[in-house]
Design a binder for these strands. Structure first.
Length: 582
RNA sequence: GCCCUCGUAGUUCAAUGGAUAGAACGGCCCCCUCCUAAGGGGCAGAUGCAGGUUCGACUCCUGCCGAGGGCACCA
């Protein structure tokens, strides 16, 4: 790692000068590429203690650095208020281009979590309800974080937790029970069956809200769902559950997620209830108004939460508590990541406090990540009112906007269809992933679905463009083995326009970005980087003829190939496909 | 009322305590006899308010104003 090398270099220089060692050697990328590749603020940090001005101290440090400057560094200079800027050498930059080509898909991966068992839970749709755009959001984030973590060498397992019991199921059955026996569309295509169920849920919810009698009925149904004493309820339930799960599987396929484990509330519920009852006796929980609750420490901002309600049924809290243990029994993880909507952030804090008492070893290994809501300009979307945007409908909408834009490049209709789907998924996923996890995403169906600029299709387009150039370079191989004139240019070679330097100066950063994004669970860092790289390449493309008669053409092709590789790898880590043509 | 999160160009977002606060969309002006114009080049435009800490604050602390979420039997 070049960054580690530089830190080491700085450290040795500071030691040699007898300077007090700071806690950390701080190294960053200057915000503008022309300033250099790395910068350290050590002179500014240490200046006061030494009693010198930052500039004076920087000069001294630089003089020391110059004594043992490695060949990866072109020059070291003082800049601004006292930064020490490092410019990497052409040799390093071109070596790195070569490394990208040699390592291919492995470039950017690291071994920081080698062999660690990590389980990540996300998407979590509920059978009997729609797979809506909120689930799409959870899936996009979870899948990308999964891939980032896997890229650090972990043994990662994807888990999906699905609510196959509970009031939402009772509501759906509330409306299904009113239908004649032969009303289920058992012969219909899967998608229609799923839509039928979604519709039934919406109707059931409205019924539920219509009066106390209906609420009572739903409550009774909920009991029957648990105890399985009513044949008609069982039949409707089993049919609905199967339809939902089968349908969800088709969506996971489209989105590119393959789960390793499925967990269900029907399993976590009884188990979690048992755990709560056991610890009720041990004093962790207490009874209150017929329910079993955990009294959170209000001084720590924790709420009191119900774990078993007064009807003796486990709530989501008890289920999730049980789930933590069920997961561990299935896959003894070193870390467990749970991705949900951020409206349960406070609740999860309580859950972690409970886990700290009940399963202390698991609590320490669990991290909750709350994401925001996918909002439409009109406000929060809801599945309770039936006014819900399903993932399917959004995908169809976006695909229909993309399809006409696909230029005829000798593709078959089928190929065009696949590309339209890949670009649509890319557009949606990127719009979710390009901002920090946690906040709401404003998704304007009519106006904001943009395929230009900072978007998934822009990155995909740039990749396809680079691949196109490479495929047209018949007889020319990407090749780094060429001579550079040493007489011109700030970097020592004249063929380099500034934009080309930019591409090279960004390429080697890929593995740093991957490592950081994986550590921070922050796919948006990768999006920002990929957009920057694609933009730099497009500028380069615009002002340079890559395939030409001159002797440097093979190097330009190598740079193009390396860019394509990193874009492809980066898109993969976002969970987005990289079509060869579009 | 209490707790959490968040206020950055007209809009949607970036910015491990660093340099001239970056993009994208929208607006205006240019660029296809040339490898994919879903592209490129240029112009205009922003840190809610008031203090504090620091060599240095969008970032940390305090207060105020504003937005979203949560505050026991939904998930």
């Amino acid at each position: 790692m070049i960054a580690e090398e530089l830190k080491d270099l700085i450290k040795r220089a500071l030691e040699a000068l007898g300077l007090e060692m700071p806690n950390e050697i701080h190294l960053e990328h200057p915000d503008e590429l022309v300033r250099g590749d790395y910068a350290t603020n050590m002179a500014m940090v240490l200046a006061k203690r030494v009693g010198k001005s930052p500039h004076e101290l920087a000069e001294i440090i630089i003089a020391k650095l110059e004594e043992s400057k490695p060949e990866t560094v072109e020059k070291v200079e003082i800049a601004g208020p006292g930064f020490i800027n490092f410019h990497l050498s052409l040799k390093f930059l071109t070596n790195e281009v070569e490394r990208v080509l040699k390592m291919g898909d492995d470039y950017g991966r690291n071994q920081s979590r080698q062999g660690q068992k990590i389980i990540i839970e996300f998407t979590d749709p509920n059978p009997f309800k729609e797979f809506h755009i909120g689930h799409l959001m959870s899936n996009a984030i979870g899948e990308s974080i999964s891939r980032l973590i896997a890229a650090t060498g972990a043994e990662l397992k994807r888990a999906c937790y699905q609510g196959d019991v509970g009031m939402h199921v009772a509501k759906t059955l509330l409306s299904l029970m009113e239908l004649p026996d032969d009303a289920l569309p058992v012969q219909a295509p899967l998608q229609e069956k799923a839509a039928f169920l979604g519709d039934a849920y919406a109707k059931g919810s409205n019924l539920y809200e219509s009066g106390e009698g209906e609420k009572q009925k739903a409550g009774d149904l909920n009991k029957k769902i648990y105890d399985r004493t009513d044949p008609k309820v069982n039949k409707l339930y089993d049919w609905g559950r199967e339809v939902s799960l089968e349908y969800f599987e088709t969506i996971y396929g489209k989105l590119g997620t393959k789960f390793d484990h499925y967990f269900f509330e029907s399993e976590a519920g009884p188990y979690g209830k048992g755990v709560v009852e056991e610890w009720l006796e041990k004093g962790v929980f207490e009874k209150s108004d017929g329910a079993v609750v955990y009294k959170g420490d209000e001084e720590e901002g924790l709420h009191t939460r119900v774990f078993i309600n007064s009807q003796d049924l486990p709530t989501y809290e008890a289920k999730e508590l049980g789930l933590a243990k069920i997961k561990y029994d299935k896959y003894p993880y070193e870390h467990s990541l749970v991705i949900t909507g951020n409206e349960i952030n406070d609740y999860f804090r309580v859950l972690l406090a409970v886990m700290g008492e009940v399963f202390p070893n698991l609590a320490a290994k669990t991290t909750h990540l709350g994401h925001g809501m996918l909002r439409l300009p009109s406000g929060k979307m809801s599945s309770r009112t039936g006014d819900v945007i399903t993932a399917e409908s959004l995908l169809t909408e976006v695909r229909s906007k993309i399809a006409p834009k696909i230029v005829d490049r000798g593709l078959t209709e089928e190929e065009k269809g696949i590309i339209a789907e890949q670009v649509a998924v890319g557009a949606i996923k990127y719009s979710i992933l390009h901002q920090a996890v946690g906040g709401d995403i404003i998704f304007d169906l009519e106006n904001s679905v943009s395929f230009e600029g900072d978007s998934g299709p822009y990155i995909q387009y740039t990749y396809a463009r680079a691949r196109s150039v490479l495929s047209k370079a018949k007889g020319l191989d990407p090749n780094l083995d060429i001579e550079y004139p040493s007489n011109a240019g700030p970097l020592g070679y004249s063929m380099s326009k500034s934009s080309e330097c930019h591409v090279e100066r960004l390429l080697y950063r890929f593995h740093e970005i991957v490592a950081q994004a994986a550590t921070d669970y922050a796919p948006h860092q990768l999006c920002t980087y990929l957009h920057q790289l694609a933009s730099a390449f497009n500028t380069y493309y615009g002002e340079t003829k890559i395939i030409d008669e001159d002797s440097d053409s093979s190097y330009r092709l190598a740079l193009t190939a390396a860019t394509a590789q990193v874009l492809k790898s980066g898109l993969h880590l976002l969970g987005i496909a990289a079509p060869e043509k579009m």
